[in-house]
């Protein structure tokens, strides 16, 4: 019997979040990877990695940049991400932040995907705001600092774990 590869949607905004997402790639080499971000030029980096590692080409989707104060752009982002998830039907969604990752995990969870949040290594003392908001919707919520993970127990029993660092 031929089993289809699991599909993973990897989501992040640009800059440090993306740099960290790229450092996690080997963890899903066995999956069909699809990327969603806010910067067109990042597609080259994805292509290069796939070629160098003999992997299938990855679908690559874009959405707009939006901060938490830009309501219209956030709506546009929500719609873009919703359409990607409907089209891709991912088995897993992984994100390193920020807003697009939060939205993708919320929507993905509702549509049956398993969700993984990797909080940025920049958040040394407490989980990011997005991380705090998403933790109850993430099947796995990781901090890259053991002290933050152990200090983040909450009443629902959704513990934040420490599995290691991107660096």
């Amino acid at each position: 019997m031929c089993k289809r590869k699991k599909r993973i949607l990897a989501v992040s905004s640009s800059g440090g979040h993306w740099v960290q997402l790229m450092r996690l790639r080997p963890a899903w080499d066995h999956c069909e990877a699809i990327y969603l971000t806010t910067e067109r030029d990042y597609e080259q980096e994805v292509k290069r990695y796939n070629q160098e590692h003999d992997l299938q080409p990855s679908a690559f989707y874009l959405t707009v940049v939006a901060s938490r104060w830009q309501k219209i752009k956030l709506l546009r982002q929500l719609l873009d991400i919703f359409l990607v998830i409907v089209r891709v039907r991912p088995d897993y969604i992984v994100s390193t932040g920020a807003a697009p990752g939060y939205i993708a995990l919320r929507l993905g969870k509702m549509m049956g995907a398993k969700t993984i949040w990797v909080d940025s290594i920049a958040n040394v003392e407490e989980l990011s705001l997005s991380g705090q908001k998403i933790r109850n919707n993430a099947d796995v919520c990781l901090s890259q600092w053991p002290e933050v993970a152990s200090g983040s127990e909450n009443e629902n029993g959704n513990s934040v774990k420490y599995w290691g660092r991107v660096l």
């Binding site: 080997p26 963890a27 066995h30 992984v94 993984i116 990781l142 290691g164 991107v166 660096l167």
Partner: peptide, 19 residues
């Protein structure tokens, strides 16, 4: 230099979750 990727612990645990 540092590795191009996350530390092995993190990658292994993520991978096993994704399997």
């Amino acid at each position: 230099g540092v590795s191009d990727f996350a530390n092995q612990d993190l990658l292994k645990k993520l991978e096993s979750f994704l399997r």
